[in-house]
Design a protein around this nucleic acid. Structure first.
Length: 420
RNA sequence: GUGGGUGUAGCUCAGCUUGGUUAGAGCACUGGGUUGUGGCCCCAGAGGUCGCCGGUUCAAGUCCGGUCACCCACCCCA
């Protein structure tokens, strides 16, 4: 048996974790000032929850889910995305009865059995937000504005292209689909094999095809944005207007097709050129029918999900220098008596909130200073036998190579010096 | 699920074309040069199932077959 992680699942090692924490911490602060609260839902749900929300004919449900039979015979699935579980929780805890509006965000691991490649893993992390209750376009706008604000806050917005569109509602979308079929039918034989299938099942997806010929044909196809019903058009116009007022950038892309079936009206996608084929960093939209479909009361909603690993790749590009918390000081000691005293001092300083490290064994002063240097500390405290006798310690400024003696007992004064 | 590329030290890689002593380099690590002072430099040391299995051969890191893993792309998506 080889000792290794399961294919497509990665360890996030200490060197990387600081960056992860930074991205997560920024999400928390930005989302919370917009009124969102974190929710943590289980990583497994009954399979049915995902099948009903994501759509039974999507690739995710058809061939990418980690589905198991539980001991009682029920079918359970590792969550392939976050919205379904949040919606389930929203319904189960009657959140709609407690408040007309619920604003929730989540972060955590998702699971899809896909072939791994750059920016795509079987176990991956998403950060997402969901806004339940308001049907007004201001809600769509706010969530997109918050999303963009977040990208700016973590510094990756220069890499990103925000695109928005509308998919219409139950009135105009079916009509548009019929229009599309009417347009593509005569050119059926020129389309690739996949697109011929899409023409039957979900003609909107032809817009997703990467084949040159299909793209060429699709270019002349009618645009959903010209075929919205009056209500949807007004809604979309108001979303755009609000974004413009705030100054949140966006470009119209009437060819956005989401991979999940539940979206209605506003949809958006944030893409990048920097990541190769997996170019979607975040995406979302409105899903006014999902809560009701999963057994809740009719509740309009809008939300998004972001790919952590993809944001991280961009963040590394933007800020290549590692994110490392540097120790405030290192304590070097000479002799076993000094070592015990150093251990005690470390404890006292840490009680004062300082980040202190030291060696546990008796090593040469040279090697201890070497380690202090590697840690990048500003100060090294030296306690030798001689210092111990005189009740002092040396504080060495590693940058300036200057040393200063201080009392071994006056920890407060020492702490103040270290935290300059 | 399909195609291509790559697997040699902790990391980045050379060696493979043309098989031949104890498989190398740089970085990192440990010790020393300084009996108590880091970085730069010098010296020494430690560290390897050459992904795995099989075949060819007197002899395989090197050639052949298979297999697994990783990466990239298709597909799909965050």
């Amino acid at each position: 048996m080889e000792t290794r992680a399961i294919r497509g699942f990665n360890d996030i090692l200490p060197d990387q974790v600081k960056r992860w924490q930074h991205i997560e911490e920024r999400a928390r602060t930005i989302f919370e000032i917009h009124g969102y609260s974190e929710i943590r839902t289980p990583v497994v749900e009954f399979t049915d929850i995902f099948a009903r929300s994501i759509g039974t004919t999507t690739d995710i449900v058809e061939k990418e889910m980690y589905t198991f039979t539980d001991r009682d015979g029920s079918s359970i699935t590792l969550r392939p995305e976050g919205t379904a579980g949040v919606v389930r929780s929203f319904i189960e805890h009657n959140m709609y009865a407690k408040s007309p509006i619920s604003k929730l965000y989540y972060m955590g691991m998702m699971f899809r059995h896909e072939r791994p490649q750059k920016g795509r893993y079987r176990g991956f992390y998403q950060i997402g937000a969901e806004l339940f209750g308001p049907k007004e376009p201001l809600a769509d706008a706010e969530i997109i504005i918050m999303l963009w604000r977040y990208f700016e806050a973590i510094g990756i917005s220069p890499f990103l292209r925000p695109e928005i569109s509308s998919l219409g509602d139950e009135n105009c979308r079916p009509l548009f689909k019929r229009e599309l079929v009417k347009f593509f039918k005569p050119k059926r034989n020129e389309l690739c094999e996949d697109c011929q299938k899409r023409l039957e099942q979900n003609p909107l997806r032809i817009f997703d095809c990467k084949k040159e010929r299909c793209k060429e044909i699709a270019e002349k196809a009618p645009s959903i944005l010209d075929n919205l019903c009056d209500e949807c058009k007004e809604h979309f116009d108001l979303v755009k207007e609000s974004l413009e007022k705030i100054g949140t950038p966006f470009v119209l892309n009437p060819r956005i097709v989401r991979g999940l079936d539940y979206y209605t009206r506003t949809v958006f996608e944030v893409t990048t050129e920097e990541l190769g084929a997996q170019n979607a960093v975040g995406a979302g939209g409105r899903y006014d029918a999902l809560v009701e479909e999963l057994g809740g009361p009719p509740t309009p909603a809008v939300g998004f999900a972001l790919g952590m690993e993809r944001m991280l790749l961009l963040h590394e590009k933007m800020f290549p220098d590692g994110f490392k918390k540097e120790a405030d000081a290192f304590i070097a000691h000479i002799g076993s008596e000094a070592r015990n005293r150093a251990f005690l001092l470390a404890y006292e300083l840490r009680k004062n909130g300082a980040f202190i490290d030291l060696d546990y064994e008796d090593k040469s002063l040279k090697s201890q200073l070497k380690r202090a240097d590697k840690l990048g500390v500003k100060y090294t405290i030296i306690i030798g036998e001689e210092e111990l006798r005189r009740g002092v310690l040396k504080v060495r400024d590693m940058r300036k190579s200057l040393e200063e003696e201080m009392s071994l007992e006056d920890v407060k004064k020492l702490a103040i010096k270290l935290k300059i």
